[in-house]
Design a protein around this nucleic acid. Sequence first.
RNA 1: GUCUAGGUGGCGAAAUUGGUAGACGCGCUACCUUGAGGUGGUAGUGGGAGUUAUCCCUUGCUGGUUCAAGUCCAGUCCUAGACACCA
Length: 795
Amino acid sequence: MHKRFEHQAIEAKWQKEWKESGIYDAGERDTKKEKEYVLVEWPYPSGNLHIGHWYAFAVPDIYVRLRRMQGKQVLFPIGFDAFGLPAENAAIKRNINPREWTESNIAYMKEQLSSMGNAFSWDKTTASIDPDYFRWTQWMFTEFFKNDIAYRGEGIVNWCPGCNTVIANEQVLANGACERCDNMIEKRKMSQWMLRITDFADALTDDLAELDWPEHIKEAQRNWIGRKSGAEIDFKLSINDEVVKVFTTRPDTLFGVTYMVLAPEHDLVQKYKNQILNWNEVEAYIEVSKQKVEQDRLDNTKEKTGVKLEGILAINPANGERIPVFIADYVLISYGTGAIMAVPAHDERDFAFAQKFDLPIVQVVSGDDTVPYSGEGQLMNSGSLNGAASDVAREIITEKVGGRMTNTYRLRDWSIGRQRYWGTPIPIVYDPEGKAHVVPEQHLPWSLPEDVDFKPTGEAPLAKSQELKERTEKIFGAGWTPEVETMDTFVDSSWYFLRYLDSKNAESLASLAVQKDWMPVDTYFGGAEHTTMHLLYSRFWQKALFKLGLVADKEPYRRRVNRGLILGPDGNKMSKSKGNVVDPDAQVKLVGADTVKMYLAFMGPYQGANYPWDLGGLAGLRRFLERVNGLMEHVVESESKATTTLLHKTIKKVSDDIENYKFNTAVSALMILLNQVEKEGLSKNTYTVFLQLLAPFAPHLTEELWSEAGQSDSIHATEFPAYDAALAKDEMVTIGVQINGKMRGDVTVSPEATEAEVLVLAQENTNVATYLEGAEVVKVIYVPGRIINIIVQLR
RNA sequence: GUCUAGGUGGCGAAAUUGGUAGACGCGCUACCUUGAGGUGGUAGUGGGAGUUAUCCCUUGCUGGUUCAAGUCCAGUCCUAGACACCA
């Protein structure tokens, strides 16, 4: 019997050792080595590590450890995204300070994280709640304000009644619910702190081309930004020379415009309420559409509704015809200009609306003769432009009527003000006239007041702070008042990867020199849920900083890897209510951190899919490590050539697979090697190489066995084994023999065997021979090392 | 509706990118072993036929290209995610 695998003792021993030696600290940049910046999304310190954290951190650690052993200087930092609602809610519930709650959680989670045994660069940690950190969050905000990237704007906002605060568009789910608390969002008109992400919409779209990201993530961002090219065209109204701006992707259909539609919230509706003859009816419609929840309004299976504005007409600039004006809730105030020119012959929605209200339908593009037809064609009923190709006519018509070609976007500016306590205070003060001023740098960090009752009422908690009020007056003068909103936590996480680099820098957010050392992030591992939120926000943030000369790169992340989800053993998403939550601490205690980590790596491809936790599967990996633990017993004087060959194949496979994030097949390659060497024996050298191959996956066990084998250095400081192509070459290969494309047998030959040699051997195969009898060989296809296909014809 | 992924054994999945489908692991079966509670060993394990040799079928479905298709092309049906009255 072999010795027991005492995982608890081994793990404790080496975690202590690593911590004391600081072996994984990134340290100063050593330019003799290539750099590699590996980033994982910093966790929210909820107080307990769950299995998702393990999947998010322990599996990328395999990649990190390989890169380290390959001689790269790897930066693999970790920190905490520690502002946010849960702390505030917990504090309310337990009547304690959110900071106490958060900081004790961080302390506890740091311990849990070290039980993972990751090669984290603990010397580079930071947290969003550190005054040293949010001081710079605030400073960047003041720079953005000075450069008109941050502004106070009146706008329609998403109000979450559950969180009692405004949330950004990106945080509203498709069904109109809050991303955090699942309450339905209400639209409110409010003055808000906004960031001009829309100014960067083109760059955010175009620069995706340079990134080494999976195409589907790029596509999701492009769709979210939603750039469309078209034309902006002015339509005159019959009153006061008033003009309505309209955005259209099809200016070529201008002659087919038979009416126009404004969004119910359009400014001009209120402005001319006295001229609108049926105002009562119009007002009632506006009220109804206000009541409608987003979901109803977006439901395109419902019949179109709208009201004609009696007494107002618009003039089609192409042909001078007077056309009616409607309001209808199928036109959205937040998209384009909030007004459309309606072309019922060539747009399905306009067509449905025209039929209901009995409006004229004029075909201006010849297509397949069905109406509505939204494809391209030749213009008709379009005056001098008849016969022109529709795509060519777009610019001609636009120019002719004094419009301009332009783009429109689905993306909206980012509202970042939150009516909550536990966040980065917005460093703005108002003078007695109510004008906003930034808090000057010498007063940063602009700290969070402590004398606050932060129960959510809808009003910002900071408004109740006497200390904040006094502080403001003391510094700025009587009558000055503080901004009382705090920032969206997505702001905090938009630049943390920069602060890791230089977390103790008191002069700047991160020096340009250090940024040049480490940026950009080489690989960013994270969750799919951040595709259109964090990932887009932080790209924007980086671009805004780049514009101000504060960073060296215009894109933060070179490669992105989105992982899947770990489900409960029942195949459902883990949740307390379903009772299917797997506690990683318990699993680690039972089978060890190495086992849990390897199991997570082995479940399936890291990118993409979701996998149910399977206790049997976990036991399988434990068995594997038990066998490794006893592998020394199989060491022999000299091993077979086949074993050496397999070893070198495995070296190549393991390093290639890890580099491509295919951790599952790398593990299986190690299993195949173990199966072989247990049966056939292995040399002392192969034994140590095997440990090195396994080291990224099972750092504790391999370190222990390495030291038992008499090595004095850490296995994790050794160079990853080199693959020798000559040794990896098989002496003999098995080749499949096909007759007319069907497998009929196989032959074993040298990899250099010629077609003629293989053919002779194939013909000697008794089963193959029966198919060749009485037949004529017409053609032979030989793929060296793979297959030989003999095409025969019956004589 | 649009976009993006996917559909391979009882399960998680592999497949050198057009070349022996199901590697590896789980589970299961049989036998051995252990005093024993998710952790020992050996053999087997896609379906069907056959005593063996071997044969037939098999990667959602239908066609096609090819000496050869899980892989390429066309169509079609499901599943998941994102976006959605976007002008």
